[in-house]
Design a binder for these strands. Structure first.
Lengths: 389, 389
DNA sequence: GAGTAATAATTTCCTTCGTCAAGTATTGAT
DNA sequence: ATCAATACTTGACGAAGGAAATTATTACTC
């Protein structure tokens, strides 16, 4: 059972306590004094803020560390997160499948599972979701009794504050109150977030974006998306549109895009676009993306050129992000990067050519991510909702 | 002389007082109750916060307004800014000229003046600046004794917190501590800011951007720049690069740009680029931008097409901003818009074609601004520095 | 015109958060 | 052992903002 009183959500979380917990959570073990310095608080305030967090089991004091460098001084007892204090379920909803994970407080994946989806009806999806979450929590590991929160990640237009899916293109949902449905069937506190934003949150709090004031994550796949953190906050867009790097026009003479634009990054470098272009250069009328990758790897120069052009377009779009908002770091990821070897160099050269001035200094990590990362993103959002509801 | 004790900068500004003053300053007269509602404070807190602001002369209580609508209730006594409580000098530094204004607390221009610059040496510019500010403050109007702050706006890479001009391409300055120089020669408290950011600040606090959580201002001229406010805060860029809309690549086959990129907006739609393209379509080898505008207005279809293409490129770049950060509103301005009539429709169609989904709802104001607006931007930054130092 | 409902502003009291300053804890160096 | 250095804790205090009661002012009703 839960520790009687204290759940962070129910604790009287003072601003200082929130700041302390967030910083320990995201930036690893830190002593009270260094927390005070970094947060602009007095060390007394940190001591006081930390106490209830330790008492409720969210933080623990590590063994005193040996003093470094010259001379004396009492050794610090760094505060660390008790990762197993609470667990968080996360599920990514795709067109044809649910991918679920259970993460600890540090967003480490403890277990995962997935289920195919029969149809796109809300009830069917919600029922499958209930089964999947049940399997995750009641299976080995015994996570059930320490899990109160579930995060969902879904592509499309999502209102995180209300948990409403305004529009989901793949599932053809409109205005589905997914938070309510999921809360009812699982009994958990549910957060719903756009999938790219969820992945960005995970990377910002627990991955390569840690410590960055501004940060971007670009996903490459069927669609090309981007999550954006500026001045420490997620960018959402006044009209629900943000991070649509895939529909930046990078080629006035390029192919027209389903969005109505021309030369959109996605119309050049999205999976469908690559397949279409590859078909033009081959005699396989029903070529798949895997075929195209195989041919390119096999040395087909024309198809390699398709990937090169796609990489350039992506790099150019990323440069647009760097030129406009100037993030500290950019991570490029997504299932499209299974063809990592065909893309990476071209993304980089496209970026370097088009990034203005000092923006080229922005570090670009290009790496494929396992598919569970999307579900981990959902869990990360639910961790975030514990700290900052 | 100054009102003895109270300057806002010296006042113990509680968070609530800052919030109240900022909101009254930017969103016009408001009653205490509506301030409380909008700021999430108790009305008691607003009463308390407002008192010292009234006592020091920064706010005034307007006459009680008639109740609107049905029924009864004590009429509100809205709080308004006393615009003439304090004045602010603002100077825009260009390649060959200084443009100066004096603004009141509401950033209304009270007087203006300008001086040509002889050379680009720091001393010469600073001395001329001193003369200009002296002329503005000691001339008619008697602003001297109520002016303590001076804002400077200059294109290039500026560190606002230290007032250091890291790099100014036009003046060829590097690491010039302009704040110190200007403070010494004028005796005023000086803020230095990038010119586009200054203009954006003015528009965000006192112009069309008022009330917007996120806002963009695009300037069209020799360069094409963009100031960006996201989640209420100016975007600065981790490496000093932000808002470089002019170097987004919108045409992979376009002309190469001095920045090393290809098909940059600026390489298509910057003043120099337009002149270059217009020359290609005419037999005037030393055509100026004014000639090009005149020919286009005269009906020269080829040169009109140059402006059309430029407008499209700008619209496409603006769409990139809308797709990525999704601002509430966008203002397009700058000296290049003297050719407003040739541009506007094409900027709009370029934007509408390339803006994704609901991003087209973002309102686009396209309008030329008088040149003093740049100096007003500088003054607006110094007003902002009074409130949030 | 008195009474009443409605809204605005203020006052008083109180809680709470975080700082300050003093004190305790723990180490290495002399 | 003593001292200097650093980490942490404690308790008193002050300032900020909230809750609730109070005052202020209006329109509407009868």
């Amino acid at each position: 059972m839960f520790l009687e009183t204290g759940t962070l959500g129910a604790l009287t979380v003072t601003p200082a306590a929130t700041a302390v917990f967030t910083m320990v959570l995201t930036e690893g073990p830190l002593s009270r004094v260094s927390l005070a310095r970094r947060l602009g608080l007095s060390s007394a305030a940190v001591t006081k803020a930390a106490r209830p967090l330790i008492e409720t089991g969210y933080l623990r004091e590590l063994a005193a560390t040996k003093r470094t460098g010259l001379g004396a001084g009492r050794p610090a007892s760094p505060l660390a997160v008790r990762a197993d204090r609470e667990f968080f379920a996360g599920v990514k909803i795709t067109e044809d499948e649910l991918i679920g994970v259970v993460c600890d407080l540090r967003a480490e994946i403890r277990t995962s599972a997935h289920r195919p989806l029969a149809g796109d009806g809300v009830d069917a999806v919600v029922n499958t979701l209930g089964e999947l979450v049940g399997e995750l929590l009641d299976g080995p590991g015994g996570y059930r009794h320490r899990t109160r929160r579930l995060g969902l990640a879904i592509s499309g237009d999502v209102d995180r504050t209300t948990g409403l899916v305004r529009y989901s293109p793949f599932l053809k949902w409109r205005d589905v109150p997914l938070m309510e449905h999921a809360a009812k069937i699982t009994g958990l506190t549910v957060t719903v977030e756009n999938d790219v934003k969820a992945l960005t949150t995970a990377e910002h709090w627990f991955g390569e974006g840690v410590g960055a004031e501004s940060f971007a994550l670009v996903t490459v796949g069927t669609g090309i998306g981007c999550g954006l953190v500026v001045n420490g906050r997620m960018v959402s867009g006044a009209y629900g549109v943000a991070g649509e790097i895939g529909h930046i026009g990078v080629d006035m003479a390029g192919p027209s895009c389903h969005c109505g634009g021309r030369g959109c990054v996605e119309a050049i470098a999205g999976t469908h676009a690559i397949v279409r272009q590859a078909r033009d250069h081959s005699d396989l009328p029903d070529m798949s993306i895997d075929d195209a990758v195989a041919l390119a790897r096999g040395g087909d120069q024309q198809i390699r050129a398709v990937f090169a052009r796609a990489g350039h377009a992506i790099g150019s779009g990323i440069a647009a992000v760097a030129n406009l908002v100037g993030p500290d770091r950019i991570v490029v990821s997504g299932e499209g990067l299974a063809a990592y070897d065909l893309f990476e160099a071209h993304i980089r050269t496209g970026f370097e050519r088009q990034a203005f001035g000092a923006a080229v200094q922005c570090s670009l990590s290009i790496r494929p991510l396992p598919f569970e990362e999307w579900a981990r993103g959902a869990a990360a959002v639910s961790i975030q909702s514990l700290v900052a509801p």
